[in-house]
């Protein structure tokens, strides 16, 4: 669109609410990169942007919905997925994208996630995983790696983190992948694929949080990206049980699941609205 014009502003300016830019994300925060990959994927996938909506919950990444120049919704904490499900059921033509963080989708909204995946609601979930509750000051989250330091676990996190791709797979997601913000091209292609995919698609994006998580674990933003470069292994079609996040052993990235299953709306129509029951 604006790609061919010279010095006419950033190519994504058309998709941004420019009056709100610069955004609130800290210097070195990975959400901006994931957000821009998402916007580029939306633009290049050729989906009808008039029929695309972005839904966010609460948290740093929840701000995403406020910056995109589409119909976008900033919902209550953890309820991005039920909101998006409702929207998809009311208007099945929409492309629904949920852009939110690990705390919102898996801590307070974990229950909604597993049920939307079970029902195979046709939507794309982009989960920014920065390993802690960044907005509220860096508390321990269900995704914080074992023995990582946070505000509430100064001696190290004693618990095991969620394996998000396994959770998504076990709940019935039909597309599961994981990338980091350093693997921007793969991430972009993956989001593009997920947008076109019919069914529940889940993409986990590992992103640095230099101010809250990084500072307490002696990691600057660039160090985090170096870790993503050195201690990750790309292994497509890996079994989801291998995907625990452990940077000492190496974190596995790739596209893990890509299945074709009937979606929620199709199954509902088949069961509750068979043609002979319609009166019109």
């Amino acid at each position: 669109m604006t790609q061919t014009k010279k010095s006419s502003g950033h190519p994504l300016d058309g998709l941004l609410r420019l009056d709100r830019i610069p955004h609130i994300w800290c210097p070195g925060c990975g959400i901006g990169t994931a957000f821009s990959s998402c916007l580029i994927a939306m633009k290049t996938s050729g989906i009808d942007l008039q029929k695309t909506v972005m839904v966010s919950g609460i948290g740093c990444s929840g701000r995403g919905a406020g910056y995109v120049n589409l119909d976008s919704y900033h919902t209550t904490h953890g309820r991005a997925i039920p909101f998006a499900t409702g929207m998809k059921l009311a208007n099945p033509e929409l492309n629904v994208v949920v852009f939110s963080g690990d705390g919102d989708l898996f801590a307070i909204g974990g229950n909604h996630f597993i049920h939307a995946a079970r029902r195979n609601v046709d939507m794309t979930i982009i989960c920014i995983n920065n390993f802690n509750y960044g907005m509220t000051g860096g508390q321990v989250a269900p995704t914080t790696p074992y023995q990582a330091k946070t505000t509430t676990t100064p001696a190290g996190n004693p618990e095991r983190p969620f394996n998000l791709p396994l959770l998504a797979y076990a709940s019935g997601a039909t597309y599961v992948s994981r990338w980091t913000i350093l693997h921007t091209r793969d991430l972009m292609e993956s989001i593009e694929e997920a947008l076109k995919k019919r069914g529940f698609s889940f993409i986990e994006v590992l992103a640095p949080c230099p101010v809250n998580y990084g500072r307490r674990n002696r990691e600057k933003a660039l160090d985090s990206l170096k870790i993503y470069q050195e201690r990750t292994i790309i292994k497509n079609d890996a079994h989801p049980t291998e995907l625990d996040i452990d940077f000492d052993r190496g974190v596995i990235l790739g596209k893990f699941i890509d299945l074709d299953q009937p979606t929620c709306t199709e199954m509902y129509d088949k069961t509750c609205r068979p043609k002979d029951l319609l009166y019109d």
Binding site: Q3, T4, K5, K6, S7, H10, P11, L12, D13, L16, I21, P22, H23, W25, G28, C29, G30, I31, G32, T33, F35, S36, S37, I40, I181, L182, T184, R185, M188
Partner: peptide, 15 residues
């Protein structure tokens, strides 16, 4: 276009 995609601030692009 790598700088364009990785920039979290929409501050750099190439033509």
């Amino acid at each position: 276009h790598y700088c364009e995609i990785i920039c979290p601030e929409f501050a750099i692009y190439s033509v």
